[in-house]
């Protein structure tokens, strides 16, 4: 790992020439009040997670405080979020998945707010960290796996036994299914963190090019374009993470193909 880091560091400094490129600095975890980072230290992670909580609270609780039958702007957004995720859960997992709706909603609102907060310049993107997304991804993985066995017992294993395939193929398919099942949490978490990190790093690289007057206009237009793309990616990744969670939940509730 240290080799890789030094290599990347060399690359970054090498291609920059006289420029200073620090596209990864924005991801550094820093202590807010100095000192070492322990488990309970208040860091920029703490700050931006707290802001995400505040954002969720503001979006879902403060806007609906009037309980208007004819909704205002804020309440419309909250209702839209609710309806969007509710319909997603209902469509993908069916009626019996509705009772897991608050968990899915928690994931969606957290990822969405964290992604968008990360787009604020000089902010810290919590969802760009593999530690964060891995907790989410593996949390979903363990939750649906345990739920699958609790709900279906050993019948949950039929998820890996594709009964619609010809008999000789089934063991091979089962192997593939099992591998894909265990790869799920990895892809689930790396997809989110990777998207966030890559987008933000690219923004930083373009911003770095803006230091050279000759290419600054192109670089700034590039920053604007990438920023627009990142807004899209932020929402889409929250959606993708949520709908995949719904799909996994559906597998746990209805393992039979």
């Amino acid at each position: 790992m240290s080799d890789g880091e030094s290599l990347m560091a060399d690359d970054a400094h090498g291609e920059g020439g006289g420029l200073s490129f620090h596209p990864m600095d924005q991801f550094e975890v820093k202590s807010l009040f100095g000192g070492d980072i322990g488990m309970f230290t208040l860091t920029n992670v703490t700050l931006w997670l707290a802001l995400a909580v505040v954002a969720v609270f503001a979006l879902m609780v403060l806007t609906t405080s009037k309980r208007a039958v004819v909704p205002g702007r804020g309440q419309s957004i909250a209702e839209l979020m609710y309806g969007f995720v509710y319909k997603m859960v209902e469509d993908v997992t069916g009626k019996d998945g509705i009772k897991y709706f608050p968990y899915i909603m928690t994931l969606f609102m957290f990822i969405l707010c964290a992604n968008f907060l990360g787009l604020i310049p000089t902010s810290f993107t919590t969802t760009s960290h593999i530690a964060v997304t891995a907790v989410l991804g593996f949390g979903v993985f363990f939750a649906v796996t345990i739920l699958g066995f609790v709900k279906n017992g050993a019948g949950f294993l039929s998820l890996f036994w594709v009964s619609s395939a010809p008999l000789p193929l089934r063991p091979i398919l089962a192997l593939i299914e099992i591998i894909s099942y265990f790869v799920r949490p990895v892809s689930h978490s790396i997809r989110l963190a990777g998207n966030m990190m890559a987008g933000h790093a690219v923004l930083k690289v373009f911003a770095g090019f803006a230091q050279v007057a000759a290419i600054a206009p192109v670089a700034i237009i590039g920053v604007m374009a990438i920023y627009g793309l990142e807004v899209l990616v932020s929402a889409i990744q929250a959606y993708v993470f949520t709908i995949l969670t719904c799909v996994y939940l559906k597998d746990a509730l209805h393992p039979h193909h």
Binding site: M1, A9, A12, H13, F27, T43, V45, I130
Partner: peptide
């Protein structure tokens, strides 16, 4: 190490996971 990958700095994981 400068611009490495702060994401792979295991020492911050416990902090991140706790607050997350």
């Amino acid at each position: 190490a400068g611009p490495g990958m702060p994401q792979l700095d295991i020492t911050t994981f416990s902090n991140q996971i706790f607050w997350l």
